[in-house]
Simulated scan of single mutants.
Amino acid sequence: MTVRVCIYLLSGLVLLASTNSVFAQGYYRQDELPLMETKPAIFDEVKLDEKLGNKIPLDLQFTDQNGKTVTLADYYKDGKPVIINLGYYDCPMLCGVVLQGLTDGVKKLNWNPGDEYRILTVSFDYAETSQLASDKRDTIFATMGGAKQVKGNGWDFLTGSRDSIEKLTKATGFGFKWDEASKQFAHPAAIVITSPDGTITKYLAGIVYPPSQMKFALMEAADNKVGSFLDQVVMMCFQYDHVAGQYTLAVTRLMRFAGWVTVVLLGSIISLLLIREFKRRRLEQSNG
């Protein structure tokens, strides 16, 4: 018992240290554009209006990368949390950066889309076609070594009608607007985390999605029904910071956890000592 607890404790501390180092690598809120020296005024009109607790309309119809008509409900049937990535496939700048950030996070995450969770990349440009979606999917999957990490329809790329797009972006609070000057859409940089019933549980804003952040958000969305015991232990030491838009170390929780572990360790050691003393006395009595 003592050895097992020590292993969990040491492993947890290693994970905590590595997670904190990931946080230090850089994180951007949705209203920060690190690739630009100045932010165009149009971005003030396309804020991300977080709709936490809102349910997305699962009856909305879209077309997948194969030209097949699907509904959002098709991706929620097996009880997995779903990441929604809104953008458009012909985007010359921000969408590609966001999508690459998501791809990097997926590659480093020790979970596979289609197993523990799903991803939906959805174009908000109703003029785009399923062929564009297919081409973008192939490009992204090529950077993942042939999509060996993706199981089945674990990561689909969708297009849709104006009505479906407007209803989905309204439900998620994701603003976008065509900028005639730059000939592109202005929009926030963020991914939306939804629970297995389609409830919006978290927004991860920015262009960098550390695997630890994604894992915590997915675990919370799934009501801790995904993830190992060690994942659950580590998550107890973190809390979501709505201002920073990320999970941060919860000092109070960490102190409580450390205290709990200390009590368990001390109790185990005392129990072992008592058992040894009891055995020693019985041995002395039998020899006497």
Rank of each mutant, 00 (worst) to 15 (best):
E32P: 01
A17T: 10
L60P: 12
R118K: 15
A127Q: 12
A147Q: 07
I7N: 05
R282Y: 06
Y117E: 04
I83K: 04
N85M: 10
E284K: 13
D125Y: 08
F229E: 15
R118N: 12
G26P: 04
E180D: 15
V5F: 08
W178R: 04
R29W: 01
V46L: 00
R137G: 08
V14T: 12
N85T: 00
S228G: 05
Y240F: 15
V3T: 08
M236E: 12
L33W: 10
I140N: 10
N112S: 13
A41I: 09
A221V: 02
T201Y: 00
Y76T: 02
Q65K: 05
W260V: 12
P210K: 03
M1C: 08
N287T: 06
I193Q: 03
T129N: 04
R282L: 14
T143E: 14
T169D: 11
S271A: 15
Y240D: 08
M255W: 12
G87M: 15
N110C: 00
F216S: 10
A17H: 13
L16I: 11
N224S: 11
D125E: 09
G146D: 10
R137Q: 14
V14L: 14
N20A: 07
T194E: 09
I140M: 13
P92F: 05
P57Q: 09
F23M: 13
L72T: 05
H242G: 03
Y76L: 07
S161A: 01
Y28F: 14
W260Q: 09
Q25T: 04
N110T: 08
G96A: 03
T194Q: 07
W178G: 01
K80L: 11
L33F: 14
L99G: 10
T71C: 14
L10S: 12
L249C: 01
E166C: 03
T201E: 15
R281V: 10
Y88M: 07
L94T: 09
L230D: 09
A205N: 12
L9H: 07
N110H: 10
Q149W: 02
G173W: 06
D223K: 15
F185V: 00
L168Y: 01
K151P: 03
L13W: 13
K107T: 06
I275G: 05
D138T: 12
K167H: 11
N85H: 06
A147H: 07
M93A: 13
F185E: 09
F124N: 11
S123M: 06
T194S: 13
L48N: 02
E37Q: 13
F229C: 06
M219V: 01
L72E: 07
F238K: 01
C95T: 07
I275Y: 10
A222F: 01
A190D: 08
I270E: 05
V233Q: 14
F62M: 05
K39N: 13
A186R: 01
L132Q: 15
F124C: 08
N54H: 12
P211C: 09
G206W: 02
V208Y: 09
Y203F: 12
P40Y: 02
I84A: 04
S123F: 07
V122S: 08
L109D: 05
E166P: 02
